[in-house]
């Protein structure tokens, strides 16, 4: 009986996330326009300067835009993860989270459902982007050359990477007291995470340019999310990437559940105020 309740509640939370997403059309279009600008503008400019030697998972020389696709997929999920966290803070301040938290459901389940709903939305955005990329290839605007099977094999990678990025955003949002503060936090998270990673340049090239920068990239879990997606798009499995992404996701989610305080933003909470666990 309780499982039926949980299944319905999970469906409700996912349904609400999708309804809100489609209501906020600007969010959908900006989620698509951002990676498309990167793909069309930046890749066109940089392909002339970037010679990409064969390096796993690629077996031949590839155009730069092919290299960019996994990084842009991860970028969509990164932005969505942060957007979803922002919406959680908004919900907390506006009181919508209280409606969720006063239902007879465990708190971990509520947060997990919110996270999975956000992952589902991010996957929808990634597939919309990949669909447009497919059309670019079909109409010979760009030569992206994604194996059709890659559209399927990338799904598990997108689920775990979306989960990791959403959980990181959730953990961050748990520590932020006010909505206004989160915009600043986002800037300090999104841009370093994206730029100090293998999203735009392969690690071997970064290593050639700066060893210190390469080390930073190696300690960035976003790098592993990008590489996991890259390998999966080519029908290959990247074990280390999966391990890092799954571990980071679990740690971040545990931190989020442990530190989530529904009373934040509700009223001034002096230090030492107790909260429900």
């Amino acid at each position: 009986m309780i499982n039926v309740h949980m299944a319905r509640a999970f469906y409700g939370i996912v349904m609400r996330e999708f309804l809100r997403f489609f209501q906020q059309r600007a969010r959908f279009f900006s989620a698509l326009v951002r990676p498309l600008i990167w793909l069309l503008v930046f890749s066109a400019g940089w392909r002339q300067t970037q010679g990409l030697a064969p390096y796993p998972p690629y077996e031949t020389y590839i155009p730069y835009e092919v290299y960019m696709i996994p990084g842009l997929c991860a970028m969509i999920q990164l932005f969505n993860g942060m957007q979803s966290s922002l919406s959680m803070i908004y919900d907390r301040e506006m009181g919508s989270m209280r409606v969720l938290l006063t239902t007879p459901l465990p708190r971990w389940f509520i947060l997990l459902s919110r996270l999975m709903a956000s992952v589902a939305v991010s996957i929808l955005q990634v597939y919309a982007f990949l669909g447009i990329a497919f059309l670019f290839t079909y109409f010979e605007v760009l030569d992206l050359d994604i194996d059709p099977i890659g559209y399927l094999t990338v799904l598990p990678a997108l689920i775990v990477s979306g989960f990791m990025l959403g959980a990181l955003g959730m953990a961050l949002s748990s520590t932020v007291k006010q909505l206004e503060n989160f915009a600043g936090v986002m800037n300090f998270v999104i841009f370093p995470m994206f730029f100090i990673s293998s999203a735009l340049f392969p690690l071997w090239r970064i290593k050639d340019l700066s060893y210190a920068f390469y080390q930073f990239c190696q300690y960035n879990p976003f790098t592993y999310a990008v590489e996991l997606i890259r390998f999966a798009l080519h029908g290959q499995y990247y074990g280390l990437g999966a391990l890092v992404v799954c571990s980071t996701a679990l740690i971040a989610f545990t931190v989020a559940v442990y530190s989530y305080d529904p009373a934040r933003g509700m009223q001034a909470q002096p230090k030492g105020a107790k909260r429900a666990g």
């Binding site: 309740h5 509640a9 409700g12 939370i13 349904m15 409606v99 969720l100």
Partner: peptide, 9 residues
């Protein structure tokens, strides 16, 4: 509808 699902209805 959202609330009813949260309540398992």
């Amino acid at each position: 509808k959202y609330f009813s699902l949260l309540r398992g209805m």
